[in-house]
Nucleic acid binder design. Structure first.
Lengths: 346, 346
DNA sequence: ACGACCTAGGAAACCGGTTGACTGAAGCTG
DNA sequence: CAGCTTCAGTCAACCGGTTTCCTAGGTCGT
C-alpha cells in the first residue's frame, strides 16, 4: 500500500513550527488577541507553506468560525446573464477570503432543498439570492432563520438587503436611442409579472414613453426565454386597428433571449430587421454580435453586480449594517445593426 | 434579544425520542450493525421530522463520514452545454443523497485554487471534472492525492475514469445527413487541439468522409465560441484554387456557439444559408431553433452524461471499481432549415 | 437452574479546528 | 528586591456528529 499523502493538519503545522495548535491557529487567522514574536510568526507561516496546510472547513465551521463559503442562488443558469454575475461574485469572494458556490434554484422547486443542504447543513455562511420573487418559499425560510443574505438583481421590497443595477435607466437609454432614430411607436417585451427588474423596466419604459410623447407604447409579457420573446412579440405586432397597419416600428426587450425570440417572430411574419422593425435588447453577450443582424443591446453591469453583492453580504456576515445598494455603473448602449430609423437600412 | 431559532442537533433529536445520540445516528443512517425495535425507529424518525433535523455537514465530515457533496468543474459556464450536464449531475446526485456543487475552472487558471478550496478543505467527497486537457495542473494534483474523481466529456486517456458520449457517432450522423442531401465537399470547424471530444469528432469526421468518398473534407480549428467559429469558417471558405471556387458546400461545427459564428461569417462573405452553404452544429439548445435560419443540430445526450458521471463517481466513492463509461443514448439529428441540398432552398 | 447467546441500545473516544482562561518568564517600578 | 505588568505563548474545553466497544436483560438449551 502506497503512502497516503495525508492532508496536513493544524497539529502537524504546530509540530513543525515547534509551537502549540492554538498559536498556529491564531497566527494563521491573524488574530489580534495574541502577541507573537515576528520570528515565531515566520516559522508558523513557513511550516504551513511547506506542508501545504489547508484548514478543514468542516472542523473550522464546527468550532464556531464560519465556513468561509457563500452560495449564489440563480433562477436559471441557462441564462448567461447569471453566469457573468456568478463570475463577479466568485472573484470578489476569493479576494475577501471566501468561496462562492453556485446553485440553480429552479424557480422555487428546489429552493427548500437547496436551503437545507446549504444553510441548515452548515455548508455556507450566507446566501446571495438572485432568484427571489413574491411568494417564493425561500423568503419564508429566510425570515424564520437568521442567515445572512442579500438579494441581487431581483430585489425584495422592504428587505433592506437589495443589491441592484439601475434598471430603470436601461429603459431610458434604450428608448432614447430609438426615439433619436425617429421611432414614435415602440413596443416592450417585458419579463414575467411580479419579478422586480421586470416591473421596474416596464414602469420606466412607460414613464419615459410618456415623457417623450410616443404615440404608442404597448407592453407584452413573456418569460425571459426565446419562446417568451416569440409569443410577446407576436402579441405586440398583431394589427390593433382594422386597417391592418402595424402598431409599432421598434421593440425593446427585457432580456437577450427574448430579443432573439423577437427577431425570430418578426421574421416569421415576413418583416425585416431593422427596415420594418428595429430590435434592442438588454444585456450584452458575445452571441449578440453574431446574430443576423447583429443585435443592438443595452449592456448592464452584471459583473459589478456580482462583486457588489458579495461585498454587501460579507459586510453583513462580519457584523456590519445592511442596506440597499445600487451599482453605480450605468447601463451602456452597444450599437449594432438591429436598430435604424423607421424604414431605413442600418 | 429574540429567540434564536437554533438548528436542531443530533442530541436534540435523541432527547425528543428518548434514546441516545448513537442510536439516532445509526437509525438515520440506516446502519446494519444495530438492531432496533421498529417502534424505536419510528420514534426517532418522527422526532427528526418534527424538529426538522439536518445533520451538520462539517461535523459529519469530521467524524469520518463524508460530506456527501460533489463538485463539478466545468471549463466555461457561458457554454450552456455544461449547464445541461450540470442539471443532470445535480438531479442524480440528489437521488443518491449527494449535493452537487458547480465551479467554473477558467481553463486551469483557478483549478489549483478550486482544488484546494473544495478538496483539501474537505468540502467535497469527489470531483466531476469536465475541464480536463493535456497538461492541466489539476491532473497533477489529482495523481498526488487520492481523491475520487471521474472525467466527463473531456476524457483523459488511460485514466480508466472517463464518462463520455458517443462523440464519434455525432460526426457520422452529421456527415450522413449532409451526404444524403448531396453534399460532397464538407468542411469541419473543430474545437481546440488536444481536447478529447474535439479530437475524436475530427478523426471521426475525417474517417467517415473517407468512407463516403467525399471530394473534400477540410478541417479548421477554433475555440468553442462564436469567434472561434467565425475564424475557422473564414479559413474553410477561403478559395483554395486560383479559380476562386468555393471549396465546400457545407460546414459541420463542433459546438453550437461555433455554428452561430459560422453562420455570421458565411453571411459576412455574402453567401446564403443553406442555398450556398449548409450548416450543422453539435448540441441542441433552445436558441438553435430561433436563429436565422433555424439551425440543424446533432443533439447530444448531455443530461444523461451528467447523471452517468455522478453514478460513476458515487460508485467510486463508495468503494466500487472504476472504469470507462460511454453513455448509451445515441446522438440525435434535429432537422431545421440550415441544411439543404447544394444550391437548394430548404 | 445455569451459563451461552441474542437483542436493543448506551458510553465515550475521536475527528480538526477555535477560543477564552491561564501561566512562566522577563521587564519595570518604587 | 518584592510586586506588578507585559509578553509570548499554552491548555483544555468545545463544536456536532460517527463509530467502536460495552452491557443489561431476556431467551434458550441442557
Amino acid at each position: 500500500m502506497p503512502e497516503q499523502p495525508v492532508r496536513a493538519r493544524l497539529v502537524d503545522v504546530a509540530r513543525a513550527a515547534g509551537v502549540s495548535k492554538a498559536t498556529v491557529s491564531k497566527v494563521l487567522n491573524d488574530r489580534q488577541d495574541l502577541s507573537v514574536r515576528p520570528e515565531t510568526r515566520r516559522r508558523v507561516h513557513e511550516a504551513a507553506e511547506t506542508l501545504e496546510y489547508r484548514p478543514h472547513s468542516g472542523a473550522r465551521a464546527l468550532a464556531g468560525a464560519g465556513t468561509h463559503a457563500l452560495a449564489l442562488l440563480v433562477p436559471a443558469l441557462a441564462n448567461p446573464t447569471y453566469v457573468t454575475i456568478a463570475r463577479g461574485a466568485y472573484q470578489r469572494a476569493r479576494e475577501l477570503g471566501y468561496l462562492s458556490l453556485l446553485a440553480e434554484d429552479f424557480d422555487g422547486h428546489e429552493a427548500d432543498e437547496s436551503f437545507n443542504e446549504l444553510v441548515q447543513a452548515g455548508r455556507v455562511d450566507g446566501l446571495l439570492i438572485a432568484s427571489a420573487r413574491p411568494g417564493h418559499p425561500l423568503l419564508d425560510a429566510l425570515s424564520r432563520s437568521r442567515v445572512p443574505h442579500v438579494f441581487l438583481n431581483r430585489s425584495v421590497e422592504g428587505s433592506g438587503r437589495n443589491v441592484t443595477m439601475d434598471v430603470a435607466r436601461s429603459s431610458v437609454t434604450a428608448l432614447d436611442h430609438l426615439h433619436s432614430l425617429g421611432h414614435r411607436a415602440v413596443g416592450h417585451v417585458a419579463g414575467p409579472p411580479g419579478i422586480a427588474p421586470s416591473e421596474v423596466r416596464k414602469q420606466a419604459f412607460l414613464r419615459h414613453a410618456g415623457e417623450l410623447g410616443l404615440s404608442a407604447a404597448p407592453v407584452a409579457s413573456g418569460d425571459f426565454t426565446e419562446d417568451g420573446g416569440v409569443s410577446a412579440t407576436r402579441e405586440l405586432l398583431r394589427p390593433a386597428d382594422g386597417a391592418g397597419r402595424r402598431p409599432i416600428t421598434a421593440i425593446y426587450t427585457s432580456s437577450l433571449a427574448q430579443a432573439i425570440g423577437a427577431m425570430a417572430a418578426i421574421r416569421d411574419l415576413g418583416l425585416r430587421i431593422p427596415e420594418d422593425i428595429s430590435v434592442i435588447g438588454n444585456d450584452d453577450l458575445p452571441v449578440a454580435g453574431h446574430l443576423h443582424p447583429p443585435l443592438t443591446t443595452v449592456a448592464m453591469p452584471l459583473y459589478e453586480l456580482g462583486t457588489a453583492a458579495v461585498d454587501a453580504l460579507v459586510a453583513t456576515i462580519e457584523g456590519g449594517p445592511s442596506g440597499d445598494v445600487v451599482v453605480p455603473t450605468e447601463p451602456r448602449l452597444v450599437l449594432r445593426r438591429s436598430t435604424a430609423g423607421p424604414g431605413e437600412s442600418p
